[in-house]
Nucleic acid binder design. Structure first.
Lengths: 235, 235
DNA sequence: TCAAAAGTGTTGTTGATACACCCATGA
DNA sequence: TCATGGGTGTATCAACAACACTTTTGA
């Protein structure tokens, strides 16, 4: 800190906040975890989850802390989305906010946390207006999700360890917000050879039941090392 | 500011800096604009260009200011790369740095600025070690540039308004760091219909001379609106 | 027995790749 | 006249898109 003072002290300092755009997939719908803000300004309005960075933590660390506090989950998929720093983005003062985009397996998110923090899963189509620039963060996050989903196997972050192909397809349809051809989808995803077919079927959605699969992370890693490109086309 | 005090004042504040990864293309080589740092810590070592954000400017504004001060150029292609905020990234104190990735037409960059700021164009392959986490910024920026170049027509940001196809191809080869087939490249780029063939030839590189082209921005915009996807494959 | 979701192949089209020779020109 | 870089076309292959019927089973 002594150094800090001597070299940089003539420069202004800013509050640094983090906002998390948290996606989940539940009942065939892509959802966002939001809540009603509990402090001024804009108390009571819908908002993303966020918090201020502390003196003794790094950025990523802070984002992980906030996600952990909110969900009790660790090792969540998370990446930086963008940093927002307009002068007047927060009416209560100058705040630089780093937006993070996270995917959580909704089934692992417990109600207990929901009650504690007033968190609510809201379908993307039923999203209320959010405070400040949070709407544009969500918009950008969705575009990022769409791009990522088509070039990296991140869909699996949103599903249980064991899932069916129709479930996976429904997830992609929710992300792309468009229908996908059943046969082509199966062919493509299975041809990559990164799904492990299990013995059991899941019968919650049909009488016939659909086979369960799991994602073979190791095999995927090897493919990537060999230059393989995961792609699921958008239309 | 009154509000700021009342609501947020219990939270710490941080220095916010910006670092610019500035690419240029000159003599068939992809280059980076760097300089020897003029203040402590790490004075005299190679560094990206950067600066601290001021109280009365937004993030993008600050990035544009820094680029303008350094190059005298406006309307430069620029996008946020990532925000770096490890606790110990700067030995002199806690600084959150937002890294920006910029493309400038090297031919428009004047020597005058170079002298004033000690700026130097260095080929990517001859890059000296940079201070702090700047090396990883550059690495990430290069990957970003490669991805962008293959899906958006940003190559033109690095070339003069009028350029030849061999020049354009050399640029792509420099970005991808690999050779590209001449005939396939031509076919692909011309089939998109966003290049306008001019009358003149450029004879600086061959006796025969190569026809000059310019990029048709309007046509490109229309194509994009119609759902067109610019792609130039990587290999 | 029937409703509802799971599962299955083929064909045409398109885009990517690989590849070798002639052209124009100034020195 | 020749050395240098500019310019051109075709054939093969892989990936994508379109498309309709059968299977299973619980109610």
């Amino acid at each position: 800190m002594a150094l800090n003072e001597s070299y940089y002290s003539e420069h202004p300092r800013f509050h640094v906040a983090l906002d998390c755009i948290i996606f989940g997939f539940d009942r065939g719908e892509l959802k966002l975890l939001i809540h009603k803000r509990r402090f001024e300004p804009a108390k009571g309005e819908w908002s993303l989850f966020g918090g201020f960075m502390k003196e003794d933590e790094g950025l990523e660390e802070a984002a992980n802390r906030i996600l952990y506090e909110l969900t009790g989950l660790e090792e969540i998929y998370m990446e930086e989305l963008q940093t927002y720093g307009s002068i007047d983005r927060d009416p209560a003062g100058r705040v630089i906010s780093v937006a993070y985009f996270a995917l959580i397996p909704a089934h692992r998110y417990s109600e207990a946390y929901s009650n504690r923090y007033g968190a609510t899963w809201v379908g993307l189509k039923d999203l209320p207006p959010l405070i400040m620039d949070h709407d544009s963060m969500v918009e950008k996050a969705l575009r990022r999700l769409q791009r990522r989903a088509s070039s990296q196997p991140i869909g699996f972050e949103l599903l249980p360890k064991e899932f069916t192909i129709p479930q996976l397809q429904a997830l992609y349809e929710a992300i792309y917000q468009s229908k996908v051809d059943k046969r082509n989808f199966r062919k493509k995803i299975l041809s990559m050879g990164v799904l492990i077919k299990l013995e059991e079927k899941d019968k919650t959605n049909s009488r016939k039941g659909a086979f369960l699969y799991s994602f073979d992370k190791k095999k995927y890693r090897k493919l990537v090392e060999g230059g393989y490109n995961f792609t699921i086309s958008r239309v």
